[in-house]
Structure formats: C-alpha cells, structure tokens
Design a protein around this nucleic acid. Structure first.
Lengths: 340, 340
DNA sequence: ATGAAAGCGCTAACAG
DNA sequence: CTGTTAGCGCTTTCAT
C-alpha cells in the first residue's frame, strides 16, 4: 500500500490569535512565558486553549530570524561510526542546552572532511561549530565566522579555543610501561592520515621509548581506521616484525588494536607473552573484547562536554582558557614481563 | 590565555547590493545561480566581487523562512553510542541530499526517548523526521506533523512509512542453525525495554525453537545495553543455566554478546564447545573481536539509506510503499555440533 | 493590559 | 535585464 504525503499545514500564531481573540504579539508573549503581569489571566487561559485547539507550535525558523540568534551548533567529525567520535557526540548532546539543536556534519564519501565541508557548514548561521580531529591542512586555512571549538587538534591554532588530550603523558606512561616490561623493539600501527593528534601519539611514543633505550621500528600505516584493515596489514607485516625482534605493538586507535589481536590469533602468537599490545582510545567494550589490551583512555565524552562548555563561554563572553588539555589514563591490562 | 568572543557581524545581501550597486533581489538571484539570462554578465561579476569582498553568505534561516521550506531532517535515536544506531546514522548521512542538514536528537539523561522529546523535535519546522527503534508507548500516541519514517518498529502503525528488518526469518535461520547443532535448551539475553523489534527477535526465536523441539529457558534481561552489564548478569546467572542444561545463548544485540563472551572466559566455559553464542546486529568488528559469535547481520546502514529515500518520496509525493522489510543474514561463525 | 507596527534577511512575483 | 513590492512567521518596542 503506497503512502500519500499528508502535509498538514501548521497553525501559525495568527490562527491562535484569531481564535483567542487577541493579537499575535500577545500569543508570542504567552507562549514564551514572558507574560508575567503583562497579560490578563483570562486571556492567557484563552490563548493556551487556542494553542491546544489548533496544536500550535512556534516556528523555530521564524523565531530564530526574528530574535536574530542562531540556535544550532554543528559538530563536524570524520566518521560517526568510530566509537571515539560517537562518544564525543554523546558528551556534546548531554551538555548542550535544550534550546540549541545539534546538527551533524560528516563526509559522505571521502574519508575525512575538508575545508569545503566546513565552509558549507558555516553558510548557515550557527551558534557554534565544533570540529573534531581536523586535519592539518584544514586547520591552517580555517577562517572562523562563528564561535569555534577545536577538538583533538594536537595544539595548533592558538588563536582559537582548542581542547586536547594529554597524549604526550599517555605516551610517556606507555613507554615506561612497555620498557619496564622488557620491550626494546616496538612497532606503531596507525592510520595514513595527516592529523596532528595522531602524529603526536606516535612521535611522543617514539621519543619516550628512545629516552629509555627502546626503539620504534618503521610504522605500519593502514588506509582505513578499521579492525579488518589492521588485521590484514599485520598478517602481511608479521614476518618482518619477527625478524626485527618486535615484541610490542602500539596502535593509534583501539579499533586497530582489535584487528592486530585477531591477526595474532591467526598467527598463533601469544598476546600477552610473545607480544604485548597497546592502543589509544579505550572504548567501553575494549576491556571486554580485548582483555589483553593495554589501552589509553582518551576521555572522549569529556571532550564533548568541554566543547559545549567552551562554546557557551564564547557565546556569553565569559572568560575561557584558549586551550584545555584533558588528562588521559593508561589502563594497564597486560603486565607480563618478557625475557629477552 | 583567555579567549575573547570575536563576534563579527555577518554581511547581509543589503551590504552586497550596496557595494555592487544593485538590489538585494539581484544579489539573491546571482548567489543562488538563478540568474541565467536575467542578469547582465557585468553586473553578475560585480555582485560576485562584492560577495567576496564582504565575505557574504546567505543566511539559511532567513532563506528557509522566505522559501517556506524546511531544510533539516531530524534523526532521533536512543543512543548514538550504540554501533547499530551509528551505522544507521552513517547510512542516513551518506544518502541525504547536500541541501538538507541533519539534526540529531537523543535523550540526554534517560535511556530512551519519549513523546516529549519527539514533540520538541517537531517544534521546529522539519523536512522530515526519522525515528529509530521507537518504544511502543511513543509509537501508539505519535501524531506526525511532517513526513515521518519509522525504523525498526517491529511493524506497527501501518499508517506511517516504516522500514523494518526481517528479524523473523533471521530467527528462523538461527533456530535452525542451533537446533541442527544439537542445542535443545537456549537462553535469550536481552534488554529490559519495551520495544517491539526487540520483543520480535525474542518471540520469533522462541516460536522457531519450539517448532523444532527446543525450548527457551527464562530470559536474562539487563537494564543497560552494554557489554559489562551483560557480563555481570551472566556471571550471576550461570549456575542456574547450567542446572537447566543451557547450551546456547542468543543475545538481542552483539554488544551484549561481547559481554557474554567475556563471562564465559572468566567462567572457563568453552565457546564454542560447551556453549554456543549468537547475537543480533553484526557490527563491523564483531567478527574480529568475537570470532566465535554467530551473528545476525541487520544491515543497519541500509536502514539509514532507505529511510532517507522514503523521506524523499514522501516529500516529492512519489509513490512509496508504506512498509519495507529489509533482509537480514545469519553470519555463521560457529558450527560446532554438540553431543548431548 | 493589549495591539499596531516595524522589522529580522531573504525570495518570488510582478512591473518596468 | 533589473528594481520594486510583498510577504515568510515571529518578536519586540512603543503607543494606547
């Protein structure tokens, strides 16, 4: 049975005014609760009655236009499917004022969003813009036209508010942990993308390992941030790793770590034991699906919460630090020392 | 360093018109590309120049109001963090026309969205509304005021377009599979929520098992759709299951299955072997993180894609079936027959 | 206490 | 080809 488009024209304030026998101005006052001592109780009652009668709801577009305020904040992220971003999203939603609507913008085809996409987002009149993990090229050329908050940039653009994760100290903890366990040759599995935050994770790790007498062998970079991509790449790379004496793998994201874990199972490599595995971004089920995975908790939800707070501050003009660095925490789930 | 709110007032069409020496109407035509043979090439050039000069972008709110068209579709779902919904979301985004913006609405505190939330969504003037897995109470009282598409309802409200998943035949396949493997006593692990689609999975499974001489022991219902919740509940329930001779567990969602898997590890129960595990909603990394899990692929992305198509049809007035049922597919990853 | 009127910024019809 | 004119539906002074 085909369905026909039943477009019921919506009641306007005029309809309500007519029914209640008053002006639209009064309707506006009453409906917005700004009628304290300005509208007679009887009229107020009649207005509400009329509202129910015709099922009136204010047209938010017209309202926004008349008030001259934007009421939508846009969240731009590379991939809503990635647990990291959906957690950030969750934090944003939780914190966002009810009067604001959240609009989501993600690349429909490409793997990452670019300047054109952000420009398109800013075409609307926005209450704010939250950019999650923007690529470096975008970051350099961004000209904000509304309050903007940058998330997980790796700390560039000091002229804009940015909220970052303390991946550096996470890397330190991680290096300490791995070296303490006896690891000397570590490999980094990452995604082939130009993101400062991603580079930061890797570079900090490298530096900290080096400082402790361990080394990072050449990276394994996959083109997609998926477990299967990582798994297949590891299957391919394993022989080389073995020759180089790799005993620990650090992944830029837990999703990749899941894939590495699967590869080790296929290869019959004991994890932990022969190999230690670590990742960034401890998702809620990391501990469940990969009990052997030592993981850096990136407090993604908190990132979303802070983003909204920063936006609020920017909008109200309240003072707000230009840069916030959120703590990260190493969740150790593998303390098997290796004998070398 | 605190950041000050740099609010740059945006240029309007008036500014451009003044600069280009024409009327705002002309600016509108040029900017919207509706000036074919209506504006002199020279003037057009001047308009564009002025546009760049003052960095003009049309105010989408005003534009929407003037055109009398809504340009935002709202997606309402219980939890953007759940892979199922983020996949649906991904499908929606991929399919949605560029001129439409997607707005996301999810409950900020409660576990599920209710009528009040949907009402609030419909307060804006929407191009469309997509409701994912609405609870039964909401469904019964929903009065649409714009094109609405229902996702994963379990097939109620035949007056509205709804797109469902063929969980019934998935349940049949699953029952067949389990019974074929030798299982006779199965338990269902679900979430304690009043959703037709969820009930459907369970009920269809029960019926199909019964038809094949197997039975469903009393359900294990957890209150949150998380792996940890399922794990802890299973740890608690295991003794009872063992007494009842349970040899297979079916989960309403793979996230729960992850938790069950973890519980079996802790209990030292072999999966597969002593126990078979199955779930609904085969997420991209299910095969990686839970290789022993037999899972029903729910084609969540496709659900999103179809939702947008349905919305388009409703808007353009094109004929569209009131009900679509998307196929599901059992992904068998455990074929270990049990001896009873 | 209430309504008339003037926009918000833009678009669509209609004159010129 | 181009500008003038009316609004879209709502909010907000400002008279009454």
């Amino acid at each position: 049975v085909p369905v026909s488009p039943t477009r019921v024209p919506r009641a306007t304030a005029r309809d309500v005014a007519r029914l209640a026998g008053c002006s639209t101005a009064t309707v506006s006052l009453v409906v917005n609760g700004k009628d304290a001592g300005r509208v007679a109780t009887d009229l107020r009652r009649r207005v509400w009655e009329a509202v129910r009668e015709v099922d009136y709801r204010v047209n938010s577009t017209a309202s926004a236009l008349a008030r001259g305020v934007a009421d939508t904040v846009v969240f731009v992220c590379p991939d809503p499917t990635n647990p990291f971003f959906s957690l950030v999203l969750d934090g944003i939603i939780e914190t966002l004022d009810e009067s604001l609507t959240l609009s989501l913008l993600v690349p429909s085809r490409s793997d990452d969003y670019d300047r054109a996409m952000v420009q398109r987002a800013m075409a609307g009149d926005l209450a704010g813009l939250i950019l999650a993990s923007p690529g470096r090229p975008l970051l350099e050329t961004l000209v904000p036209t509304c309050p903007v908050v940058l998330l997980d940039t790796g700390g560039e653009r000091t002229d804009l508010v940015s909220i970052n994760l303390d991946v550096a100290s996470a890397a330190t903890e991680l290096a300490e942990h791995l070296v303490g366990l006896g690891h000397r040759r570590v490999v980094y599995v990452g995604v082939d993308r130009d993101k400062a935050s991603l580079h930061l994770r890797r570079d900090a790790l490298e530096a900290q390992l080096a400082a402790r007498g361990a080394t990072l062998v050449p990276d394994l970079l996959v083109s997609k941030m998926t477990a299967t991509a990582a798994r297949d790449a590891v299957l391919e790379a394993w022989d080389g790793w073995e020759r180089q004496g790799v005993s620990a793998v650090v992944c830029g994201d837990d999703l990749l770590a899941f894939g590495v874990l699967e590869a080790t199972k296929r290869l019959g490599v004991a994890v932990p034991g022969r190999l230690s595995l670590a990742g960034f971004n401890d998702v809620p089920y990391s501990s469940i699906v990969a009990p052997a995975l030592t993981s850096v908790n990136l407090s993604a939800r908190e990132l979303g919460i802070r983003a909204v707070r920063a936006l609020n501050a920017l909008t109200t003009g309240a003072r707000h630090p230009a840069s916030i660095v959120l703590p990260t925490r190493l969740v150790v789930r593998d303390s098997t020392a290796i004998a070398r």
